[in-house]
Design a protein around this nucleic acid. Structure first.
Lengths: 232, 232
DNA sequence: CAATTAATTTAACCTATCGTTAACATATGT
DNA sequence: ACATATGTTAACGATAGGTTAAATTAATTG
């Protein structure tokens, strides 16, 4: 049952699709390739997948529409979008539908592999979290997201506000990796505009203050992209 | 002695069923496998289980129907549903019948183990609450929830009102952990609104006054979430 | 069944917490 | 250099919670 992970790949460019499929197969994934949105949805319904990788621009049915249909059936299906150009509008739309990540074409295949691995791992964590797992350890911290307590070594715990709590949790789920701004904004603030964005910056500052006691933990900014919780 | 937990597994796909059964057996559970709803219900009546794992889509009798029959016999039997696609309506239907959790196929075996553990643990808590254990000791207190008596060391006992009593019991059953506001309100006050919520705050204040004699016991608030009985 | 007492709810007032926004400072990419 | 993104602090308004007392309701008792 610890079989290969199954991935649905929907890509209209046949050359690129086949190359990508073979590359992923070589890396021990089970790939089903569909060459448009229609076929993608048919195959989605037919098999069980762990992850879907969708090209955004496709004839007949674009990636977003397909994503909507997929989410209709399975709300928690992890999604990666492949986009030629990354319009801000598109990125937002994607996150609202429930994208887990974005990849701008052309992309480095290793980056894709890394993201696939990260998402599958994260998703597993989240589905465990659903039944109430809520204790995290990182560096010298212990973080209890149910009680909203953050403890450093033997110090007394610090209380976190709901927003601080959610943001830290999201950073941890993406630890050592980019946590996209838009993701946090759409999931935690439920809206992405100038003010929510500034509000998030304020919360990042608050978290930094809580974490500064440990020199091995940092929250880095990736300009225009988001933040990264770095743990040495 | 044999204190393994007994699980009824109903799954129509024989390959998957057997693999899952063996996997769970390896993890120290006693498994009875049934290959359809009919057989599932027969076996359910024949043995005594701690938990049932039901595939939703099965021929003859689907998982929901079987769940209904099981709940008919045992209201409190914990259930986990396995579903290929998690349609929103199905999830809702499942929770209405009394599902404790959901697992979307394909799922990770570790996640299943986690959820089983969490449900069995949670259910133990609930059954303690219902089977009416009533003698509690914590820190230097003795609390009898049947007589509604609270005693500190060798002092004379103090009498508690019915609401004080239920609230304290609920806090103790969640000691050092969050007791959600909502839980106390729906269980004790049978309604969750502004006034019942304020009433509960009043009772928290009363309990705090009763407990303040012992410096090792505290009732902490977790803003927006609930209360926590802390025992050093 | 009226009187009394206990239990609970509601009101009032006050404090703590939380999230947003403004303001100003600094950093980054072009 | 410029526009834009981020860092940081403080102030404010909204809401949740803490506490006490009065009002209401339920239970008990003479």
């Amino acid at each position: 049952m610890n079989d290969k992970k199954r991935i649905l790949l929907v890509e209209d460019d046949p050359n690129f699709g086949i190359i990508l499929r073979d590359f992923l197969k070589m890396n021990d994934y089970d790939i089903v390739l569909a060459k448009n949105g229609m076929e993608g949805f048919e195959k989605f319904k037919k098999y069980d997948f762990h992850l879907c990788i969708l090209d955004v621009m496709m004839p007949y049915k674009d990636g977003f529409t397909l994503a909507g249909e997929i989410k209709e059936v399975n709300q928690d299906m992890p999604l990666i979008f492949l986009t030629a150009k990354s319009l801000k509008e598109d990125v937002l739309k994607g996150y609202k539908i429930g994208a887990d990540d974005y990849l701008k074409k052309p992309f480095d295949s290793d980056v894709l592999l890394y993201k696939i691995k990260a998402i599958l791992k994260r998703n597993k964590l989240i589905s465990v979290l659903d039944t109430g797992e809520y204790e995290f350890k990182f560096s010298s911290f212990e973080f209890n997201s149910k009680l909203r307590h953050l403890k450093f070594k033997d110090n007394k715990h610090v209380k976190l506000s709901p927003k601080e709590n959610m943001l830290l949790k999201m950073l941890i789920l993406h630890k050592n990796d980019l946590m996209p701004r838009e993701l946090a904004l759409t999931r935690i603030w439920r809206d992405d505009n100038y003010f929510t964005s500034r509000s998030m910056d304020v919360y990042i500052a608050k978290l930094r203050k809580q974490l500064e006691i440990d020199p091995n933990v940092k929250i880095n900014n990736i300009h225009g992209e988001g933040f990264r919780l770095v743990i040495d």
